[in-house]
Design a protein around this nucleic acid. Structure first.
Lengths: 130, 130
DNA sequence: CTTGCCCTTGACGCATGCGTCAAGGGTTAG
DNA sequence: CTAACCCTTGACGCATGCGTCAAGGGCAAG
């Protein structure tokens, strides 16, 4: 399987796969004699897992920071690593991300409030110099 | 008043003032013979207004898109334009921004939900190919 | 005149997850 | 062999609101 088919199978693009590899989320795959990357179903499954983790708000750096633990997801079992982010290894990044999301939601809600009051009354608390 | 003092008076930096000017939020101020920008209290008040609008979530482009209406805030009254975002001219951008904030808050809340469930159960709805 | 702080314009940096363009080579069908 | 499509690496683009560095000139005090 070359990169185009692997990317399609994982629901993404060749560029994304090279990007994950460059960032250390995918180990450099084997190459054909001419230098083209070759992927197996295991790699595709891993890419799916990566994309699911990203889709729920984890960042590439979050995954990179746990890449060494992440690895064991496809080393022991051959193909089963479709997505197992409930794995204990992710607890730290997940809880950190939850906190970050909560903080961001609170910040935006506060902003929304201020803006709504500003529009309604024409005045809100001015930041001043402090 | 040169740029440093004007910026301090408005609670920001010289760089920000030049930036607002460059983006069309501030009209080019008068210059000393040697080319240094000179600001009056009116400009400072306007900068405060700009910063308040930015602080509640409006973007520079939002303000730019209404710059022509924004202008009348300091053309008619001499100094009083401390901040009057309740002005009818801002209704479109304000409501658009409110909608954008609501959408973003909803998106993040959804993400937070998915992540929490993913961490708890180890499974969430996988995006698949569609 | 000199010191030292402030001003000028121009331009790159940041953080995120890739998109996209470029130049050159591989691969496969006819 | 050729067309057509896929691959390779390298590098810039995006969107936001400025921060920061650089090189050169201004202004007030001693």
């Amino acid at each position: 399987m070359r990169i185009g088919d692997a990317a399609a199978a994982a629901g993404t693009t060749p560029r994304a796969l090279r990007f994950y590899e460059e960032r250390g989320l995918l180990r450099p795959p084997s190459r054909t004699p001419s230098g083209q990357r070759e992927y197996g179903p295991g790699e595709v499954a891993r890419v799916r897992a990566i994309r699911q983790l990203l889709s729920v708000g984890l960042t590439v750096d979050d995954l990179v920071s746990r890449a060494h633990r992440f690895d064991l997801l496809d080393e022991d079992p051959p193909v089963r690593c479709s997505a197992d982010p409930g794995h204990e290894a992710f607890a730290p990044v997940v809880s950190a991300r939850l906190a970050a999301l909560d903080a961001e939601i609170a910040r935006l809600s506060d902003l929304r409030d201020k803006l709504a009051r500003l529009a309604a009354t024409g005045s809100a608390d001015v930041p001043g110099e402090g």
